[in-house]
Lab assay of single mutants.
Amino acid sequence: RLRTTILPEQLEILYRWYMQDSNPTRKMLDCISEEVGLKKRVVQVWFQNTRARERK
């Protein structure tokens, strides 16, 4: 499996959503993934990793 590259524009959108809610619902993940143009699972893992980084 290839690692997904997240573009700066996509990152900006993801962080904007993250500021609103760091733990989005499944429905929100659907909306975010549509807006960003990434698979739902990629967005979900990005949120998990970002929460983990914040805890450090």
Rank of each mutant, 00 (worst) to 15 (best):
Q48K: 14
R16P: 06
T50H: 13
L38A: 00
R53A: 11
M19F: 08
T25H: 03
W46D: 00
M28Y: 01
K40Y: 10
R16K: 14
Q48R: 11
A52Q: 11
V36A: 12
L11V: 14
Y15Q: 15
L14V: 03
D21I: 10
R26Q: 15
N49R: 09
Y15P: 04
Y15G: 10
L7T: 15
L29H: 02
Q44K: 10
L11Q: 14
V43S: 02
P8R: 08
S22Y: 05
E34W: 04
T25N: 15
E54S: 04
L14K: 04
F47N: 06
M28I: 11
N23I: 00
V42H: 07
S22L: 04
R41G: 13
S22K: 13
Y18W: 04
N49D: 14
S33I: 00
V45Y: 09
K39R: 09
G37F: 01
L7D: 15
P24E: 04
I32M: 04
D30M: 08
I32Q: 00
K27P: 11
V42K: 04
L2I: 12
L2Q: 13
E35K: 07
L29T: 01
Q10H: 14
R53M: 12
P24C: 02
L14T: 01
W17I: 10
I6W: 02
K27A: 15
Q44T: 12
W17R: 13
D30Y: 06
G37V: 02
R26A: 15
E35N: 08
I32L: 01
V36N: 02
D30L: 04
Y15T: 15
I32D: 02
L2W: 07
E34R: 10
I6H: 08
R51C: 00
W46N: 03
Y15R: 14
Q48H: 11
K56R: 12
R26T: 15
R53W: 07
N49F: 05
R55H: 13
I32S: 01
N23H: 10
V36M: 07
Q20F: 13
Y18A: 00
G37I: 02
V36Y: 00
R1T: 01
N49P: 01
K27L: 07
M28C: 06
G37N: 11
R26L: 14
K39T: 13
Y15C: 13
L11H: 14
W46I: 04
L29D: 00
T25C: 06
E34P: 00
V45E: 14
E34M: 06
R55A: 13
M28P: 03
W46K: 03
L7N: 14
R51M: 04
K40V: 14
V43P: 02
Q20P: 01
L29N: 00
E12W: 02
D21E: 06
K27Y: 08
Q44M: 11
E35D: 09
V36P: 08
R51V: 02
A52I: 09
R55K: 10
A52V: 08
Q20S: 08
M28A: 13
F47S: 03
R51Q: 09
V36G: 04
I32T: 01
R55C: 13
R51G: 04
R53H: 11
Q10S: 01
I6S: 02
V45L: 11
L11S: 12
V42W: 05
D21S: 05
I6Y: 06
P24H: 05
N23S: 10
V42N: 06
L7I: 10
R1W: 05
L7Y: 06
S33D: 00
E9Y: 07
K39G: 13
L38Y: 01
L11K: 14
A52K: 12
K39W: 01
L29C: 05
I32Y: 01
Q44L: 07
Q44F: 02
I32V: 05
E54L: 05
S22P: 15
Y15I: 10
F47A: 00
V36Q: 00
Q48E: 15
N23W: 10
K56A: 15
N23G: 04
E9D: 08
V45Q: 12
R53E: 15
Q44W: 11
V42S: 05
L7F: 02
Q10L: 03
Q48D: 15
R53L: 12
R26H: 12
L11Y: 09
E34Y: 04
P8T: 11
V45A: 08
R3S: 04
E35S: 04
L14Y: 03
Q44V: 06
E9N: 07
E9V: 00
G37T: 00
W46G: 02
W46P: 03
N23R: 12
E35F: 01
R41Y: 09
K40A: 11
S22G: 08
I32E: 01
R26V: 14
T50A: 10
L11F: 08
R51L: 05
I13V: 12
R53G: 10
A52C: 13
Y15V: 11
M19E: 14
N23E: 13
V45F: 10
Q10D: 06
I32C: 03
L14G: 00
C31N: 15
L7G: 14
E34I: 01
Y15A: 12
Y18P: 00
D30P: 06
R16I: 08
W17T: 05
Y18C: 05
K39V: 03
E34C: 03
K40R: 14
A52G: 08
K27I: 06
Q48S: 13
V43L: 06
V43F: 00
A52N: 11
D30S: 12
K27M: 06
N23V: 07
R1S: 10
E12M: 04
D21L: 06
Y18D: 04
P8Q: 08
W46H: 00
Y18H: 07
V42C: 06
Q10K: 07
S22R: 12
R51Y: 03
I6F: 09
R16H: 08
R53V: 10
Q44D: 15
L14Q: 05
P24G: 03
L38T: 01
T25K: 10
K39S: 15
Q48F: 03
A52Y: 07
K39I: 00
Q44A: 12
V36F: 09
L14F: 00
Q44I: 09
V45C: 11
T50P: 01
K27R: 09
E54Q: 08
L38V: 06
T25D: 14
K56P: 07
L2A: 10
W17L: 07
D30F: 10
M19D: 12
L29V: 09
E35A: 04
Q44S: 11
E35W: 04
D30V: 06
G37M: 04
S33N: 02
N49L: 06
L7K: 11
I32P: 02
L11P: 01
P24D: 02
L29K: 03
K39Q: 15
T25A: 05
L11R: 13
V45P: 01
V36E: 05
R26E: 15
Y15D: 15
Q20R: 13
D30G: 11
K56W: 04
E12S: 01
W46C: 03
S22I: 09
E9C: 06
L38R: 03
K27S: 11
R1Y: 04
T50G: 03
V36C: 13
L2Y: 14
T50R: 11
T50M: 13
F47W: 01
L7S: 15
L14E: 06
E12L: 04
A52H: 09
Y15K: 14
N23M: 09
Q20A: 12
L29Q: 06
C31W: 03
Q10F: 03
S33P: 00
Y18I: 00
R51T: 09
Y15M: 15
L29S: 06
E35Q: 10
Q20W: 06
V45S: 09
N49I: 05
E9T: 01
